[in-house]
Computed example of a mutant assay.
Amino acid sequence: MSLPTAYLTSTKNTADILRAMQAAQAPDRFTIKFLEGLGYAGSNDRAMVNVLKALGMLNESGIPTRRYHEYLDQTRSEVVLAQAIREAYSDLFKVNKNANTMTSTDVRNKMKTLSEGAYTDRVLTQMAATFAALVKMADFNTTSLDEEQSLVGDSAEDEVALDTPERRAPGRGGNGRQAIGDLVYNINIHLPESRDPAVYDALFKSLREHLG
Protein backbone atom coordinates (compact mmCIF):
# COMPACT_ATOMS: atom_id res chain seq x y z
CA MET A 1 0.00 0.00 0.00
CA SER A 2 1.40 3.36 -1.05
CA LEU A 3 -0.29 5.78 1.32
CA PRO A 4 1.88 7.95 3.57
CA THR A 5 1.58 7.14 7.25
CA ALA A 6 2.65 10.73 7.95
CA TYR A 7 -0.12 13.29 8.30
CA LEU A 8 -0.82 16.66 9.87
CA THR A 9 -3.12 17.03 12.85
CA SER A 10 -3.71 20.63 11.72
CA THR A 11 -3.25 21.98 8.21
CA LYS A 12 -3.79 25.70 8.86
CA ASN A 13 -0.05 26.46 8.49
CA THR A 14 0.73 24.05 5.65
CA ALA A 15 0.77 26.63 2.86
CA ASP A 16 2.74 29.12 4.97
CA ILE A 17 5.37 26.53 5.87
CA LEU A 18 5.85 25.60 2.22
CA ARG A 19 6.23 29.26 1.27
CA ALA A 20 8.69 29.80 4.11
CA MET A 21 10.76 26.88 2.84
CA GLN A 22 10.99 28.52 -0.57
CA ALA A 23 12.07 31.83 0.94
CA ALA A 24 14.88 30.21 2.94
CA GLN A 25 18.10 28.55 1.92
CA ALA A 26 17.98 24.76 2.03
CA PRO A 27 19.42 23.53 5.35
CA ASP A 28 22.00 20.79 5.73
CA ARG A 29 19.32 18.93 7.67
CA PHE A 30 15.67 19.84 7.99
CA THR A 31 15.04 19.56 11.72
CA ILE A 32 12.44 20.72 14.22
CA LYS A 33 14.87 23.49 15.12
CA PHE A 34 15.05 24.63 11.50
CA LEU A 35 11.26 24.58 11.33
CA GLU A 36 11.10 26.72 14.44
CA GLY A 37 13.57 29.08 12.80
CA LEU A 38 11.08 29.50 9.96
CA GLY A 39 8.59 30.67 12.56
CA TYR A 40 6.64 27.47 13.16
CA ALA A 41 7.28 26.11 16.62
CA GLY A 42 3.83 24.65 17.30
CA SER A 43 3.54 20.97 18.12
CA ASN A 44 1.11 20.51 15.21
CA ASP A 45 3.67 21.93 12.78
CA ARG A 46 6.36 19.42 13.69
CA ALA A 47 4.61 16.66 11.78
CA MET A 48 5.53 18.54 8.60
CA VAL A 49 9.01 17.04 8.77
CA ASN A 50 7.63 13.53 8.30
CA VAL A 51 5.25 14.72 5.59
CA LEU A 52 8.20 16.13 3.65
CA LYS A 53 9.94 12.79 4.00
CA ALA A 54 6.85 11.06 2.62
CA LEU A 55 6.88 13.46 -0.33
CA GLY A 56 10.50 12.59 -1.09
CA MET A 57 11.80 16.05 -0.27
CA LEU A 58 13.83 14.81 2.68
CA ASN A 59 15.59 11.51 3.20
CA GLU A 60 15.16 9.54 6.40
CA SER A 61 17.94 11.57 8.04
CA GLY A 62 16.18 14.83 7.20
CA ILE A 63 18.68 15.81 4.52
CA PRO A 64 17.06 17.73 1.63
CA THR A 65 16.87 15.71 -1.57
CA ARG A 66 17.09 16.88 -5.17
CA ARG A 67 13.31 17.29 -5.14
CA TYR A 68 13.57 19.70 -2.21
CA HIS A 69 16.03 21.85 -4.14
CA GLU A 70 13.84 21.71 -7.26
CA TYR A 71 10.92 22.83 -5.12
CA LEU A 72 12.81 25.99 -4.17
CA ASP A 73 12.50 27.13 -7.79
CA GLN A 74 9.26 29.05 -7.44
CA THR A 75 8.64 28.95 -11.18
CA ARG A 76 8.32 25.14 -10.98
CA SER A 77 7.49 24.52 -7.31
CA GLU A 78 3.81 23.74 -7.81
CA VAL A 79 4.60 21.23 -10.57
CA VAL A 80 7.31 19.59 -8.45
CA LEU A 81 4.89 19.27 -5.55
CA ALA A 82 2.24 17.71 -7.79
CA GLN A 83 4.70 15.05 -8.93
CA ALA A 84 5.67 14.38 -5.31
CA ILE A 85 2.02 13.97 -4.34
CA ARG A 86 1.36 11.59 -7.22
CA GLU A 87 4.23 9.38 -6.09
CA ALA A 88 3.50 9.52 -2.37
CA TYR A 89 -0.20 8.77 -2.87
CA SER A 90 0.25 6.52 -5.90
CA ASP A 91 -2.36 3.97 -4.77
CA LEU A 92 -4.93 6.72 -4.49
CA PHE A 93 -4.13 7.89 -8.02
CA LYS A 94 -4.41 4.30 -9.25
CA VAL A 95 -7.99 4.27 -8.00
CA ASN A 96 -8.69 7.67 -9.57
CA LYS A 97 -6.12 9.27 -11.88
CA ASN A 98 -7.68 12.63 -10.99
CA ALA A 99 -7.57 12.05 -7.25
CA ASN A 100 -6.49 15.65 -6.80
CA THR A 101 -10.00 16.74 -7.82
CA MET A 102 -11.79 14.47 -5.35
CA THR A 103 -13.59 15.88 -2.32
CA SER A 104 -12.09 15.35 1.14
CA THR A 105 -14.93 12.94 1.93
CA ASP A 106 -14.22 10.86 -1.18
CA VAL A 107 -10.48 10.86 -0.43
CA ARG A 108 -11.16 9.76 3.13
CA ASN A 109 -13.40 6.91 1.96
CA LYS A 110 -10.87 5.72 -0.62
CA MET A 111 -8.11 5.83 1.99
CA LYS A 112 -10.26 3.77 4.33
CA THR A 113 -10.68 1.13 1.64
CA LEU A 114 -7.01 1.14 0.66
CA SER A 115 -5.80 0.91 4.27
CA GLU A 116 -8.19 -1.97 4.98
CA GLY A 117 -9.22 -0.60 8.36
CA ALA A 118 -5.71 0.10 9.59
CA TYR A 119 -6.61 3.63 10.73
CA THR A 120 -9.34 5.13 12.87
CA ASP A 121 -11.89 7.51 11.38
CA ARG A 122 -10.18 10.45 13.09
CA VAL A 123 -6.81 9.58 11.58
CA LEU A 124 -8.34 9.02 8.14
CA THR A 125 -9.97 12.44 8.33
CA GLN A 126 -6.61 14.05 9.13
CA MET A 127 -4.86 12.08 6.38
CA ALA A 128 -7.46 13.27 3.87
CA ALA A 129 -7.12 16.86 5.13
CA THR A 130 -3.33 16.66 4.73
CA PHE A 131 -3.74 15.44 1.15
CA ALA A 132 -6.20 18.23 0.38
CA ALA A 133 -3.93 20.92 1.87
CA LEU A 134 -0.99 19.74 -0.24
CA VAL A 135 -3.08 19.52 -3.41
CA LYS A 136 -4.10 23.18 -3.03
CA MET A 137 -0.43 24.15 -3.31
CA ALA A 138 0.27 21.98 -6.36
CA ASP A 139 -0.21 22.29 -10.11
CA PHE A 140 -1.50 19.08 -11.72
CA ASN A 141 -2.21 20.67 -15.09
CA THR A 142 1.31 21.64 -16.17
CA THR A 143 3.67 19.02 -17.55
CA SER A 144 6.20 17.81 -14.99
CA LEU A 145 9.96 17.91 -15.52
CA ASP A 146 10.15 14.16 -16.01
CA GLU A 147 7.28 14.22 -18.47
CA GLU A 148 8.90 17.06 -20.39
CA GLN A 149 12.09 15.06 -20.76
CA SER A 150 10.09 12.05 -21.89
CA LEU A 151 8.21 14.12 -24.47
CA VAL A 152 11.46 15.59 -25.79
CA GLY A 153 12.87 12.09 -26.17
CA ASP A 154 9.76 10.88 -28.00
CA SER A 155 9.83 13.89 -30.33
CA ALA A 156 13.45 13.22 -31.20
CA GLU A 157 12.67 9.60 -32.00
CA ASP A 158 9.70 10.63 -34.15
CA GLU A 159 11.86 13.16 -35.99
CA VAL A 160 14.44 10.49 -36.76
CA ALA A 161 11.71 8.15 -37.93
CA LEU A 162 10.28 10.81 -40.25
CA ASP A 163 13.68 11.72 -41.67
CA THR A 164 13.83 8.69 -43.93
CA PRO A 165 14.37 8.57 -47.70
CA GLU A 166 10.65 7.77 -48.12
CA ARG A 167 9.55 10.99 -46.32
CA ARG A 168 12.09 13.50 -47.62
CA ALA A 169 10.42 15.97 -49.95
CA PRO A 170 10.77 17.43 -52.40
CA GLY A 171 13.62 15.67 -54.13
CA ARG A 172 14.92 12.23 -54.83
CA GLY A 173 14.33 9.43 -52.36
CA GLY A 174 16.91 6.78 -51.57
CA ASN A 175 16.91 3.08 -52.37
CA GLY A 176 15.75 3.64 -55.92
CA ARG A 177 12.69 5.67 -54.93
CA GLN A 178 11.49 9.01 -56.28
CA ALA A 179 9.81 11.35 -53.75
CA ILE A 180 7.43 14.07 -54.97
CA GLY A 181 5.74 15.99 -52.20
CA ASP A 182 4.41 13.39 -49.78
CA LEU A 183 4.11 10.75 -52.50
CA VAL A 184 6.72 8.08 -53.02
CA TYR A 185 7.11 6.16 -56.24
CA ASN A 186 9.04 2.95 -56.82
CA ILE A 187 10.43 2.98 -60.35
CA ASN A 188 11.27 -0.29 -62.07
CA ILE A 189 12.97 -0.07 -65.47
CA HIS A 190 12.89 -2.95 -67.93
CA LEU A 191 15.60 -2.36 -70.52
CA PRO A 192 15.00 -3.50 -74.10
CA GLU A 193 17.36 -6.01 -75.60
CA SER A 194 19.75 -4.19 -77.91
CA ARG A 195 23.37 -4.37 -78.93
CA ASP A 196 23.40 -0.68 -79.82
CA PRO A 197 24.79 1.47 -76.89
CA ALA A 198 23.04 4.51 -78.37
CA VAL A 199 19.68 3.01 -77.40
CA TYR A 200 20.63 2.90 -73.73
CA ASP A 201 22.25 6.34 -73.87
CA ALA A 202 19.04 7.83 -75.24
CA LEU A 203 16.94 6.01 -72.62
CA PHE A 204 18.95 7.21 -69.62
CA LYS A 205 19.15 10.73 -71.03
CA SER A 206 15.38 10.81 -71.24
CA LEU A 207 15.05 9.56 -67.65
CA ARG A 208 17.36 12.29 -66.38
CA GLU A 209 15.39 14.95 -68.19
CA HIS A 210 11.99 13.83 -66.91
CA LEU A 211 12.83 12.64 -63.38
CA GLY A 212 15.53 15.13 -62.45
Results as ranks from 00 to 15, higher is better:
51 V>N: 07
65 T>K: 12
26 A>L: 08
141 N>T: 08
134 L>G: 01
12 K>H: 10
97 K>E: 06
193 E>K: 14
95 V>H: 00
211 L>I: 15
160 V>H: 06
192 P>L: 04
51 V>E: 12
133 A>V: 14
212 G>C: 09
102 M>L: 13
81 L>R: 01
107 V>C: 01
80 V>C: 02
45 D>Q: 11
26 A>K: 06
206 S>V: 13
192 P>N: 00
91 D>F: 07
58 L>M: 10
52 L>F: 05
70 E>C: 00
68 Y>C: 09
183 L>R: 13
14 T>E: 03
45 D>R: 09
172 R>T: 13
187 I>V: 14
198 A>L: 11
156 A>H: 12
25 Q>F: 02
128 A>S: 12
77 S>M: 14
31 T>E: 07
9 T>M: 12
149 Q>I: 14
176 G>E: 06
182 D>H: 07
34 F>Q: 08
101 T>C: 00
130 T>V: 05
194 S>N: 08
138 A>M: 10
51 V>W: 02
85 I>M: 09
142 T>E: 14
10 S>I: 06
177 R>A: 00
167 R>W: 04
40 Y>V: 13
100 N>Q: 12
200 Y>Q: 10
121 D>E: 15
99 A>K: 04
8 L>F: 00
77 S>T: 15
161 A>L: 15
128 A>D: 11
186 N>D: 09
123 V>H: 03
173 G>W: 11
96 N>K: 14
16 D>L: 08
146 D>Y: 04
189 I>C: 01
174 G>T: 10
183 L>Y: 12
48 M>K: 05
202 A>S: 11
137 M>G: 03
109 N>W: 04
73 D>G: 04
83 Q>R: 15
5 T>E: 13
107 V>K: 05
139 D>Y: 03
117 G>W: 13
207 L>V: 15
108 R>M: 12
54 A>P: 13
87 E>S: 08
197 P>R: 06
182 D>I: 01
103 T>S: 11
39 G>M: 02
81 L>C: 09
48 M>C: 04
38 L>V: 04
94 K>D: 07
179 A>V: 15
192 P>Y: 01
143 T>G: 03
193 E>I: 11
164 T>L: 10
52 L>S: 08
170 P>Y: 02
198 A>D: 13
68 Y>W: 10
163 D>V: 10
158 D>N: 14
195 R>Q: 14
97 K>T: 04
130 T>Q: 07
188 N>I: 04
14 T>C: 01
139 D>V: 10
130 T>K: 12
31 T>A: 00
113 T>Y: 01
181 G>Y: 08
197 P>I: 09
129 A>P: 13
180 I>K: 12
182 D>F: 05
157 E>N: 10
69 H>G: 02
35 L>Y: 08
39 G>P: 11
207 L>N: 10
106 D>P: 03
71 Y>T: 03
42 G>W: 02
23 A>T: 09
61 S>M: 06
66 R>D: 07
112 K>H: 05
135 V>M: 08
172 R>F: 02
131 F>Y: 13
78 E>P: 14
136 K>Y: 01
205 K>Y: 02
171 G>W: 05
204 F>K: 12
